[in-house]
């Protein structure tokens, strides 16, 4: 669906508390257009729980159960079970969580909910750090990135939660990025119209966390995909396919140099030539594997 044809309903109300240029709210606006009114969000501690603003007001126009940091998927399990008993399975329980609450502290609950075949959608927006608490490293933080707990750059490579989720063999696993709204919308819509456990991970470049100008949020997401640092894919009942620009790369288009993307982010300012070589060769290796599959 073209951008101009996307639904006009707004479930995220203006005047919310997000930073200017926040990728989370771009993603959320689009996702909610696909999910619609019959959605119950379960939101663990993360930027979104603050973006809701302060009691007694909320910036979200769908029901939200805020929940403890590690518990989002367990919360969605409870909502899903109750909806089934109440004969309200036309309502979709959706977790809306950051990478912190998904990759790290929330991974146990996520894995359990997936393995149990829970009827819900889990959406992880990934800004590659604990942004809500002020830019600390997470399991999703990439190699070499500055954070307030990795002042000289993270020494480890990030996990890939999408791969871990795929190992649970659920009906739908997909990745998206805010720079490709049609692709994101289509994926959320497809997930909504399926049942069982569905997982989406949305790439969300964060201006204060990654140190770039707030007007460049969409550009950062685009460049991440164009350099191959972030991959757009969709796996339906075990059949994996790359989508959108990532599909083009797989089919032969050259990836833009990764340095172009790294250079634009203050969090990578401390990378040495050696670091960049490491990142480059690891990325090349990954894409060679993708092409070999």
């Amino acid at each position: 669906m073209a951008i101009k044809d996307l639904p006009r309903d707004e479930y995220l109300l203006k005047g919310h508390a997000a930073c200017p240029g926040c990728p989370i709210t771009v993603a959320l606006r689009i996702a909610l257009k696909a999910l619609g009114k019959k959605t119950i969000l379960v939101i663990p501690a993360c930027c979104s729980s603050v973006i809701e603003a302060l009691y007694p007001k909320s910036a979200f126009n769908v029901p939200i159960l805020n929940i403890a940091f590690e518990a989002a998927a367990a919360g969605a399990s409870g909502v899903s079970a109750a909806l089934k008993k109440l004969d309200k399975t036309d309502i979709t329980p959706v977790v809306w969580a950051g990478d912190g609450g998904s990759y790290d502290i929330g991974i146990q609950a996520l894995s359990g909910a997936l393995e149990r075949g829970t009827n819900f959608i889990y959406i992880c927006y990934n800004n590659q750090m604990y942004s809500n608490t002020g830019i600390q490293r997470s399991g999703a933080t990439p190699y070499g990135a500055w954070t307030t707990t990795t002042w000289t750059g993270k020494k480890e490579y990030q996990k890939e939660l999408g791969e871990i989720v795929r190992a649970h063999h659920i009906p739908y696993v997909a990745t998206a990025a805010i720079s490709y709204p049609e692709d994101l919308y289509a994926k959320v819509l497809k997930a909504k119209n399926m049942s069982g456990p569905r997982y989406l991970e949305i790439f969300a470049p964060c201006p204060p966390g990654w140190r770039f100008d707030m007007s460049k949020t969409i550009e950062m997401a685009r460049l991440a995909v164009e350099t191959g640092a972030w991959v757009l894919y969709e796996e339906i009942d075990g059949r994996l396919a790359f989508t959108s620009y990532s599909k083009k790369i797989l089919e032969g288009r050259d990836r833009k140099p990764i340095e172009d993307w790294l250079r634009l982010q203050g969090r990578f300012r401390y990378l040495t030539e050696d670091d960049i070589k490491k990142i480059k060769s690891r990325l090349d290796e990954k894409w060679n594997q993708y092409k070999a599959r």
Partner: peptide
């Protein structure tokens, strides 16, 4: 719900109770 921990057990009960 055969949850994977007690923390999740109480969370799921809270969420189900909140759903009605």
């Amino acid at each position: 719900i055969r949850v994977e921990s007690e923390h999740s057990a109480m969370t799921a009960c809270i969420a189900a109770s909140a759903t009605g």
